[in-house]
Design a protein around this nucleic acid. Structure first.
Lengths: 193, 193
DNA sequence: CGATTCTTTGAAAACAGTCAATCTGTGTGG
DNA sequence: CCACACAGATTGACTGTTTTCAAAGAATCG
């Protein structure tokens, strides 16, 4: 269960074996089935989550019942509602397994503790946050300045792997376009236009 | 020139007087006139900028000559192209003064140096980045799930001050809507609909 | 296999963008 | 003080894109 995470952390962070053991000592491994929720709207996000296998999504349910997908997270990535996690406020999102998945989680106290004793983990966290910020900026730019075709193409290029594994209507929801429109766009693209 | 910054940093960071002096020792104050550029597309973002007076914007010029505004920054906020600043790569944005403005800037080396010797400054930076990330997430959610009316209303509520000081067509550009459409939306709103 | 989920298609309606013209307010120079 | 230029905002007519609704077809899961 912890194997993927060990590979990941040895690769990304310059952590010692001792530090890896420390991290694993505070970690919990869990499995989730397709459709199962890891976080439910209204709850407080209590854990930092590492996806070691499978695919998750963060989405928001609007009043009218439609879903808006904020994020996909495949293996070797982290997923957390930063807003709820940092401020310990109720989340407005749901986190759900798209595929049967395996994750490793740390409670906030445990993770904060680790950050204090493992400086390179703090550095890694900071780096991830910066990457996340950059990606968010790019996504905003895309959202406000690109056509639907461009958004679609950009998504396929940026996340080919996720694209393969996710139903088209979820891509539509992530891009902020109706599923019918995305279906038509894809149709047009296929016949080279 | 440094007065606003001193008030700001005493308020936000738990820094000592000695540390404030340290920061100011590495800082440069500059004035910019309306329309003047602080950063030009293709340059590398060399400075961390604090706005002590006035109003700036970060925007991108598309191939077809139209502008897309990524961000406004009024007094007591920071502005920097994170992507260019962190990776020292050419920026795709321009930063321009919307009003005559006064800023304080630090070169990257100087600022990084300060982060190392003033732990609370590092904490503040981290906090600002987190806030920025939260705001970006909210903006993405807005972009992909709200109607144009809602986006407009949300902007007015979130940034009433900036809204007052900025021409409407810039708000349109920030929201990703044509200026004509925004003009019509505003018209409809005024007569309570 | 049957049920569910996902995708596609068509037609109509709502929405947003473009283009061109006009209107408004501000500031400058004569 | 006036005329003019300029930036910004608005409006109308038109075009193009996207959504919505409804239905049907394809794929997948248990």
């Amino acid at each position: 269960m912890f194997g993927n995470f060990e590979t990941y952390i040895r690769d990304k962070g310059l952590v010692t074996e001792e530090e890896v053991r420390l991290m694993l000592g505070k970690a919990t491994a869990r499995k989730f089935r397709r459709r199962q929720l890891l976080l439910r709207e209204g709850d407080v996000c209590q854990h930092k989550i590492f996806v070691s296998k499978g695919l998750l999504r963060t989405y928001r349910l609007k009043e009218d019942g439609t879903e808006t997908i904020m994020r996909f997270a495949a293996e070797n990535s982290w997923i957390v509602d930063h807003q709820s996690y940092h401020n310990q406020t109720p989340t407005k999102y749901n986190i759900e397994a798209i595929e049967d998945s395996e994750v490793i989680l740390w409670t906030r106290e445990n993770f904060e503790g680790l950050l204090l004793v493992i400086p390179t983990l703090r550095d890694l966290s900071e780096r991830l946050r910066i990457d996340n910020l950059h990606a968010s900026q790019d996504r905003i730019l895309m959202n406000i300045s690109a056509t639907s075709e461009e958004k679609y193409q950009e998504f396929v290029n940026a996340f080919p792997e996720v694209f393969r594994r996710v139903p088209l209507h979820m891509v539509a929801s992530y891009l902020g376009v109706s599923r019918e429109t995305l279906s038509r766009i894809r149709h047009a693209q296929q016949r080279g236009q």
